[in-house]
Design a protein around this nucleic acid. Structure first.
Lengths: 129, 129
DNA sequence: CTTGATCCTGTAGTTACTACAGCATTTATA
DNA sequence: TATAAATGCTGTAGTAACTACAGGATCAAG
């Protein structure tokens, strides 16, 4: 069994975040030692690591929980996980696209705006009716 | 003078959001009619529109306020606005890049995961030590 | 005169954490 | 063994930028 600091190091999840996950019921409560301190098993640390990976991939906590619970069933798991990932991938692609447009708009806005101007075309554009 | 609903339509900022901006001191308080209702001038509506445009471009509220206040000074405005936009553009590009990596990781994760599997490679990867 | 639209204030919820304060306990060092 | 540093605990509040009511007042149209 591992203390919370060790669980944090092994899973990559910050200590405060681990306690937050517990408060919110995102992970089950770990056992406590005689001193009242949390004691994590390898399996519990694995779950934290799983959630961390999902979050790093941009899944929401809810999605991470859903994906985690798939591990405990047997049927259709792969299809469900695949579908969730597909939906997520699509939303990632949409975000990329809208950021690209934003990039373009900013580039355009900055285009004819040199440093020495007194009347700023960039600000003018933002102010226009 | 225009009521808040009209100001919302003309600026594109939602009514609740306009009141929120006022509460937070992001815009100055508009005049009130005898009935106690908010009354907006063209200029105030213009400011709301300005903030809306900045937000749509991904600037923070703080940046939007800073850019707005540049309109009331005379010197160096263009350089400051340009620099802020440049910094913002860079952060947009960083976001795009990290989303691209995420896209790639998701694609890879989904790659060898067909719908019929009982043991899901995608979930396995997420669970791996 | 009634109905529906619009407006008001005030409060709480959203997402996923992060940052203390104030205290108890444990581990390492002298 | 005494002390200092590290780690742990609970509980609360803050972050960004809104959004969503509840419960009421007022206004405009027919």
């Amino acid at each position: 069994m591992f203390a919370i600091g060790e669980a944090s190091k092994r899973s990559g999840v910050a200590i405060e975040t681990i306690r937050y996950y517990e408060r919110e019921g995102i992970v089950i409560k770990p056992a406590r030692g005689d001193n009242g301190r949390r004691a994590y098993s390898e399996k519990e640390i694995g779950q934290l690591r799983f959630i961390k990976r999902c979050r790093d991939l941009g899944f929401t906590i809810k999605d991470a929980q859903a994906l985690l619970s798939l591990g405990e069933q047997q049927d259709e798991n792969c299809k469900i996980a695949h579908d969730m990932s597909k939906a997520h991938l699509e939303s990632v692609r949409e975000k990329i696209e809208s950021l690209r447009q934003l990039e373009k708009a900013l580039e355009e806005l900055m285009g004819n705006c040199a440093s020495g101007n007194l009347q700023c075309p960039l600000l003018d554009r933002l102010h226009a009716d």
